[in-house]
């Protein structure tokens, strides 16, 4: 019953998108946490002639990255996954 080219394509496309984005998130979050655990002084350094510490800059960038990843996933899902899901719905109604 579940033999459908669209379904196979959906699974492989989703796997590709999800694994890449998940890697980005897990890698960047645990890098952030690891610096705090192993080398906190690095995050304490100030960027030349300012009061911006490297930790605060990376922290804000990470918040931004998390949001961009969710936005990007929805963009990719609407572009590549949704048409496939629509076809499958037609096929199996």
């Amino acid at each position: 019953m579940k033999n459908s080219k669209d379904y196979d394509l959906l699974l492989s496309e989703r796997k590709k998108i999800v694994s890449r984005l998940l890697t980005i998130i897990i890698f960047s979050y645990f890098s952030f946490i690891s610096v705090i655990a192993f080398n906190p002084n690095f995050f304490g350094q100030l960027i030349a002639n300012t009061f911006y510490s490297i930790g605060i800059v990376f922290g804000f960038l990470l918040i931004l990255l998390i949001f961009i990843v969710t936005l990007f996933y929805v963009y990719l899902a609407n572009k590549t996954l949704e048409p496939l899901i629509k076809n499958i719905h037609k096929q199996f109604k």
């Binding site: 645990f30 946490i33 655990a37 002084n41 304490g44 009061f51 510490s53 930790g55 605060i56």
Partner: peptide, 27 residues
């Protein structure tokens, strides 16, 4: 930084997470 007794230490990681196991576990 000027107002806080810890001065510029407030811009850096402090004592919340001090060892790798706690860091990963909380994470």
């Amino acid at each position: 930084v000027d107002s806080h007794p810890k001065l510029d230490a407030i811009l850096a990681p402090g004592g919340l997470i001090s060892d790798p196991i706690s860091a990963i576990s909380l994470g």
